[in-house]
C-alpha cells in the first residue's frame, strides 16, 4: 500500500513540476512580449493557455484520486493539500500571463506612452518570486519560501508607484487614457503574480512545517 502511495505521489510531483515549468515560461514570454512590444509572442502566450488548463485539471484529478484511494496522512497529506492549492495558484498565474499578453497586444498597437514605467524591474522581481517559490517546493526549502514572502512587499510598493505615475500622467495626457489604463493593468497583473507566488511559498511552508502561515506576519525575521 505504501509503495503504491509513494509511486502516486512521485507521479503527482512530476506533473506539478511540469505545470510550474510551463507557467514560468508563459510569464517570462508575456513579460518579454511586453518589453519588446511583440504582438506575435503575446498571441502565442494567449493560445498556449489551454495546455495549462488541461494540466491543472489533470493534477486536480490526480490529487483527488490519491486522497480517495490512499487516505494519506501526515507529510503525505500535507503534500497533497499543498499540491491542490499550488495547482490552483499556478493556473491563475497562467491566466495572468494571458492577461498581460492581451494588454501587450493593445499596447504594442499604440505609439509608446510618454510615462516612465519600469516594467522590466517589476517583471523580473515578480518572476523571480515565482521561480523561487517553485524552487522552495522542489527543494523542500522553507528558508527560500520565507524569502519569497518578504519580497512581496517590494512588488506591492512598485505597483503603488506605477499607480501614482499613471495617475499623474492621466491628468495631462487626456488623449491617452486607454493606453494608460492598459499599462496600469499590466502593473496590477504583475503584482498579482507576486501575490500568487507568495501563496505558493506559504503552501510550501505548510507542507514542510504543518503550520498555516497565511494572514500572519512573518515572525522569523
Amino acid at each position: 500500500m505504501a509503495m503504491h502511495l509513494l509511486h502516486a505521489i512521485e507521479e503527482l510531483k512530476k506533473k506539478v513540476l511540469a505545470l510550474s515549468t510551463l507557467v514560468e515560461e508563459r510569464v517570462a514570454d508575456a513579460t518579454r512580449a511586453l518589453e519588446l512590444r511583440d504582438s506575435e509572442l503575446a498571441t502565442q502566450v494567449i493560445e498556449g493557455d489551454t495546455k495549462i488548463d488541461n494540466i491543472e485539471v489533470d493534477v486536480e484529478e490526480e490529487c483527488l484520486k490519491i486522497l480517495a484511494l490512499h487516505q494519506p496522512v501526515a507529510s503525505d497529506l500535507r503534500f497533497i493539500v499543498a499540491a491542490l492549492k499550488i495547482n490552483n495558484d499556478l493556473e491563475r498565474v497562467g491566466d495572468l500571463a494571458v492577461n498581460i499578453a492581451e494588454r501587450t497586444q493593445f499596447i504594442a498597437s499604440q505609439p509608446p506612452a510618454n510615462v516612465a514605467l519600469d516594467f522590466s524591474t517589476m517583471a523580473t522581481k515578480a518572476r523571480t518570486m515565482l521561480k523561487r517559490s517553485l524552487d522552495a517546493l522542489v527543494e523542500n526549502d522553507v528558508h527560500i519560501a520565507r524569502e519569497v514572502r518578504t519580497s512581496d512587499d517590494e512588488v506591492d510598493a512598485m505597483n503603488r508607484e506605477m499607480y501614482r505615475a499613471v495617475q499623474s500622467a492621466l491628468e495631462t495626457q487626456t488623449d491617452n487614457v486607454q493606453l494608460l489604463i492598459h499599462l496600469l493593468n499590466v502593473s496590477r497583473h504583475l503584482e498579482r503574480v507576486a501575490d500568487l507566488a507568495t501563496n505558493i511559498a506559504e503552501d510550501v511552508i505548510y507542507m514542510i512545517e504543518g503550520e498555516i502561515v497565511r494572514h500572519k506576519t512573518e515572525k522569523y525575521l
Partner: peptide
Amino acid sequence: LFTKPIEKETEDYITGRF
C-alpha cells in the same frame, strides 16, 4: 498526530514507510 506528528517514527509508521 495524524497531520503533524512530532516523532519521525510516528510519521514513518502512519505514512506506511516503516
